[in-house]
């Protein structure tokens, strides 16, 4: 079992990172199950809450169903509401439905979610998880209790890593955990995965060991280097093939664009940075509107090349 799963807190008491949030939620659980919405900060542990309250819960990612998501939401909730469990004391209990990635649901699905939520609120409770609440419609938000869970700070990540290290009987050299924490970019899951990878790769840890970078991120780095080196339609075409490679592996184009931007920003002059980040935002927006991500990715790269070339020409003649 992955460490990520193994050390996932099973009850609210064991939640270490967001103890404040956890405490409040515990109060809530004691009192009543109500529709909660958990806005997570980006990509953190959010699922502790799942394990806690009752055995009667279902978890799902309705957005995977693609354009059918509306029906999934409706049907599942209906289904659950029908067979309401009866607990030991003969009292009617709630079912809890955890919906992940609510922000990726289509508008229709969110709309139908809100109707369904109201209709079956007697028999089931929803926990909605999402990365950012701005993409959840106001209507759904106002029907929920909003709880923001921020990403753990680096110190907290270090603590968690050390905790895991202790449990696994590992010796951590000084600064090792901190380095992983930095590398993980305030993402605890990634930190733990990095940690485990390091363990698999080499143990005992050496003092300057770093986790291998994610393969797709490395690939994006290569692309960044490519387009810094030469700016021509031919190179653009070559880059396109690399993008294809990434897309086939289901890497979300948004992630590609962001990573690419991050890489480029590392190497650029500050004037250019403004310009590039503007165009990145522009094309990411277009990407949402359009249907073929590659068109927009490529447009971004082409724009970058064009700007960068102009910059080079004007600076070095």
């Amino acid at each position: 079992m992955l460490w990520v799963d193994k050390y996932r807190p099973k009850t609210l008491d064991k939640v270490t990172v967001h103890d404040q949030v956890a405490q409040n939620l515990r109060k809530l659980v004691k009192m009543e199950n109500k529709t909660w919405k958990i806005d997570t900060g980006t990509r953190t542990l959010e699922l502790e809450l799942v394990m806690l309250s009752s055995a009667h819960h279902v978890e799902m990612n309705p957005s995977d169903a693609g354009f059918q998501d509306r029906y999934v939401v409706q049907e599942v909730i209906k289904e659950m509401a029908k067979n309401r469990p009866i607990d030991a004391k003969g009292k009617r209990a709630f079912k809890v439905l955890v919906l992940n990635e609510v922000d990726k649901l289509s508008r229709e699905a969110q709309h139908s979610l809100r109707r369904t939520m109201e209709k079956y609120s007697a028999s089931c409770r929803l926990i909605l998880c999402c990365n950012s609440s701005s993409k959840v419609t106001e209507a759904v938000r106002s029907r929920c209790l909003n709880v923001r869970v921020n990403a753990p700070s680096e110190d907290q990540i270090v603590q968690v890593l050390e905790f895991i290290g202790k449990k696994e009987n590992l010796v951590l050299p000084a600064g090792f955990a901190a380095r992983i924490a930095t590398q993980s970019n305030r993402n605890l899951r990634r930190a733990i995965l990095f940690f485990e990878t390091c363990k698999v790769q080499q143990y005992p840890f050496t003092s300057n060991q770093v986790a291998p970078p994610l393969d797709w991120e490395q690939y994006v780095c290569e692309i960044a280097a490519d387009i810094m080196k030469e700016q021509s339609p031919k190179r653009l075409y070559a880059v396109r093939q690399k993008f294809y490679e990434l897309l086939v592996n289901c890497i979300p184009p948004q992630s590609i664009l962001k990573k690419l931007l991050a890489e480029l920003l590392k190497k650029l002059d500050s004037d250019l940075k403004h310009e590039i980040c503007h165009w990145a935002a522009h094309y990411e927006h277009k990407m949402r509107l359009g249907s073929k991500a590659i068109f927009h990715l490529e447009a971004f790269v082409a724009k970058f090349m064009s700007i960068y070339k102009e910059f080079l020409v004007s600076t070095f003649g």
Partner: peptide
């Protein structure tokens, strides 16, 4: 490369 950008941006 400027042209390339113009073209691709129209396509986008």
């Amino acid at each position: 490369i400027d042209d390339a950008w113009t073209v691709v941006s129209y396509l986008s």
